[in-house]
Amino acid sequence: MSELDTIHQIARKTLTVSAPSGGRDDWLWDRTLRTLRNIEHICRLPELAEQAISIDRFCLVTAAYFADSGLVYFAGNQKAAGKCPPADVTNADLCNVSTQTVSGKLADVITDTRIDKINRIITESFDRFTGVTEAMILSDGRGLEDLGVAGLLGEFRRQLIDGKSVSDMLESWKRKIEYGYWQARLKESFRFAAVRAIAKKRFAAAERFMNQLAIENSASDMEERLAKMLENK
C-alpha cells in the first residue's frame, strides 16, 4: 500500500463521523472528495503548465484531505443533534485544529518535513495574498464547494439542524445578496481566472435554485396561475 493510500484511509476514518441515527455520516468526507476532484482539474490548467510551475502533488493532495478536518472537532463539541459545525468557526481556528490533526494523525506515516509542508499549504490557503502555488490551488478547490448547489445543501444542512425554516434560509440568502457577500467572494476568493468563471456559473445555478425556492415558499406561481384563470373567465 502506498503512502497516499494509507493517508486516504486515515483521512476517511477521520472525516467520517456518527450520524444522529447511529449510522455513518459521510457528508464531510464527500465534500473532501469533491474538493480533490476540483484540485485535480485545477492542476491541469494551461496557465500553470505554461509557467512550468512545479507542484508538489503529494503534499497538495494530503493537505486537501485534511484542510477541513478541524470541522470534525468543532462539530463534536456541538450539543445540537447532527453534530454540524457551527457557522461562526473562524478560519484561524479551523486552520489551527486541522494542522494539529495532520501532525497527530500522520506522524507515523510520513516525514516531519512533509508534515511541515502540508501544514504550510493548509495555513497559506486561508491567506488570499499567498504566493504558495499549492495553497492557491487548495483555496480555489475548496472555494468552489461554497458557490454552487452543493454549497447550498451544506448551508441548508447546518440551518435545518439549527431549527431554521425555509423562510429563514431565504432571508439569510437575501441578506447575503444585499450586502454583496457572494459578489465579494467571486471577486476576491479565486486566484485562477478559469476557476472564477466556473464559480460564477455555479453561483448562477445556486441563484436559480433559490429563486425557485422563493416562488414555492410564497406560492407566487399559484397566485399567478389563479389570476390568469380569473382573468379569462
Score class of each variant (00 low, 15 high):
62 T>P: 03
122 I>H: 05
77 N>L: 14
223 E>Y: 03
128 R>A: 01
100 Q>G: 15
228 K>L: 10
142 R>D: 08
220 S>L: 05
24 R>T: 15
142 R>V: 13
229 M>K: 14
144 L>C: 08
171 E>H: 12
55 I>Y: 06
166 V>S: 09
221 D>V: 08
204 A>N: 13
201 K>G: 06
133 T>N: 02
118 I>S: 13
184 A>E: 11
42 I>A: 03
96 N>W: 09
71 L>G: 01
178 E>P: 00
144 L>A: 05
185 R>E: 06
180 G>N: 02
69 S>W: 00
71 L>V: 00
86 P>T: 01
155 E>K: 13
28 L>D: 05
212 Q>D: 15
91 N>L: 11
179 Y>C: 08
175 R>T: 14
95 C>N: 09
230 L>N: 09
183 Q>N: 10
113 T>E: 02
53 I>M: 15
184 A>M: 12
138 L>D: 09
85 P>Y: 05
53 I>G: 04
178 E>D: 09
32 T>E: 07
144 L>Y: 06
80 A>G: 03
161 I>L: 05
144 L>I: 13
72 V>R: 07
80 A>W: 05
27 W>D: 01
117 K>A: 05
166 V>I: 15
20 P>F: 03
44 R>N: 10
123 T>C: 01
45 L>K: 09
23 G>D: 07
24 R>I: 15
49 A>H: 12
4 L>I: 11
146 D>L: 09
26 D>V: 04
169 M>K: 00
229 M>L: 15
24 R>N: 01
48 L>N: 02
231 E>Y: 04
68 D>Y: 06
21 S>G: 02
230 L>V: 10
88 D>F: 07
177 I>Q: 14
31 R>A: 13
210 M>K: 09
204 A>T: 13
197 A>T: 08
121 I>N: 11
159 Q>A: 12
207 E>W: 05
170 L>P: 12
127 D>L: 09
176 K>H: 06
195 V>T: 14
85 P>D: 11
104 G>T: 03
96 N>M: 12
177 I>G: 06
52 A>Y: 11
108 D>R: 14
36 L>D: 00
196 R>P: 11
48 L>Q: 02
21 S>D: 11
45 L>P: 04
183 Q>R: 03
224 E>P: 00
160 L>N: 12
1 M>N: 04
221 D>H: 15
32 T>I: 10
135 A>Y: 06
6 T>A: 15
87 A>N: 06
37 R>N: 07
62 T>G: 00
97 V>E: 06
158 R>D: 08
165 S>R: 13
10 I>H: 00
64 A>W: 04
